[in-house]
Write a protein that binds this DNA or RNA. Sequence first.
DNA 1: CTGAAAGCGCTAACAA
DNA 2: TTGTTAGCGCTTTCAG
Lengths: 335, 335
Amino acid sequence: MATATIRDVAQKAGVGVGTVSRVLNDNVSVSQETRRKVLAAISELDFSPNLAARRLSSGKTMVIGALVPYFTNPSVVRRLQGVVSVVTNSVYDLILFDVELVERRDEYLLNVLRRQMVDGLLIISLTPTDTDVQHIQQSDLPTVLVDANHPALSRVVVDNVFGGYQATKHLLDLGHRRIAYISDYLDDPFNSPVRDRFKGYRQALAEAGLEFRTDYHQQGPHGRYEARAMTTNLLNLPTPPTAIFAYSDTQAIGVIEAALDMGIKIPEDLSVIGFDNIEAAEYLHITTIRQALYESGVSGCELLLQVMANPMPEPQEILLPIELVQRNTTAPPKQ
Amino acid sequence: MATATIRDVAQKAGVGVGTVSRVLNDNVSVSQETRRKVLAAISELDFSPNLAARRLSSGKTMVIGALVPYFTNPSVVRRLQGVVSVVTNSVYDLILFDVELVERRDEYLLNVLRRQMVDGLLIISLTPTDTDVQHIQQSDLPTVLVDANHPALSRVVVDNVFGGYQATKHLLDLGHRRIAYISDYLDDPFNSPVRDRFKGYRQALAEAGLEFRTDYHQQGPHGRYEARAMTTNLLNLPTPPTAIFAYSDTQAIGVIEAALDMGIKIPEDLSVIGFDNIEAAEYLHITTIRQALYESGVSGCELLLQVMANPMPEPQEILLPIELVQRNTTAPPKQ
DNA sequence: CTGAAAGCGCTAACAA
DNA sequence: TTGTTAGCGCTTTCAG
């Protein structure tokens, strides 16, 4: 069926296109009778307004964009599920930008900004650089960060420094003295949580009068398998750690697998604590720092919708709570 | 910055807008010299073509839609990850339609079809009705089904009847005679796999000379918690089953939790087999029927891209393999 | 190879 | 309250 246009509807209803547009947009200034006629014509012709035309004319796309790194990352997926739950109940559609190559991140962002592809943007687990922020501000696109921090942008975050502190403190309280940290690369500019948690780790260590040992900090690309390798290094040290704090649950799983492979018992011989509380952490009974993943997506999207509706002079910050979840992978060290 | 338009570029380059459009679209009929001038003007003005305008004018949206039910479902997420991996490397963007309410499914589909929101559509784990198919065909929108079957549409599927058979056969081979099936509602029109696997289950039973017992089939809404309740019913029967085949791994997890709660040991007292091989099944060592989830998304999206490029007269079918993965939740029955 | 001009289907400003 | 009309920014004829 060659889809009907607004002109066809106008003709059939015996009114002008402006009037049809008015009833389409729930503009009040239409008489009952006229509205009825137009509505009848619309349903008769099975008319539905063309989106591209509407967008060009109105300047609004009615879509929200979500920029995410590694759509395969469970915690990112969980956040996205929160986003989707909100978007689905709004008038907006969701377009997903998956950045697998960090080098292409820039290209994505600029594209999105310049081409006016979306009315609002959610940036998830991807810390923008100052240059990025400049571009965003220049483009005037309502933007909200989720799990990423920048003072100039509205955001939904957790206190990662405190999270790192809390995880380490838990291990310390258990009596551990040789505590390692495995993480993503500390100098990844797009990942600020990794540095914050590291800071918390060192704070807790210092507070306990413990020296930071560089050989107890392993960093590498994110992932379960990469974490296994880092763990092996750690466990082969002359004086191996008795506890490992992993930057994420995914990495904690790798730590556990590597330890098990070496015949090291958890938690008897090695304590492991993760971060995030993804579903797998529950299944595997991993002690972890829970953060409200799903909720962060919900809050982020709600905040974005708000900002889109009435822009706020100041960037907003929503701080979500974190909480230690004790399960079966941490215990006091032997003897 | 008030974004530059094609007109600005034309003016600055001293050419007509048509020429600018030609270089934008890699049209060959532009002299080296002219192209150079235009390109210079473009980069000088930091110009990027407006998408809405391009869409309206060309009639192409350059976006692919993915219609999914329950974006929280792990197997759906996994398939989607496959889709994303392909879309990301194409010229298309991805827009996500999440259908949480089955009643609204229709509305979504019609909307997508009529408003020309996308150039191609992927329908995941949502079996279309004949009416749906009619609408799709009328709209002439390239469409591919993933994990859903309809003879009139291109699709990526597995042999679910065989899968159900294989799962049941495994239990039978182990020596079980009292085998139950818990599943989603059998009469859900949008879920054909549930019926196919049930058919396979009954085939295997019949082949073994076993009668189908209605009290051994529990159905309900999909989910881990719902599966727990169904399992409790089963296990409280006068002669409870010694093995349970769960429609999905998610449900198998519920089965296991319910059994454990009742002090029933797995696999000693009860064998459990799931379906899908989601990540949690690996963590929990659940015996299951693996299907290539991620791969289904990849194949589906590649097929869609192909169909969009050159429409095929006949609907295509891609059949993906399934495979029994024996882990720790199935064993011979006691004595 | 290139410029001019006619839309694509809609919204919104302007009259009436 | 309503009809008319001028664009929105681009692609794509149609001439030349």
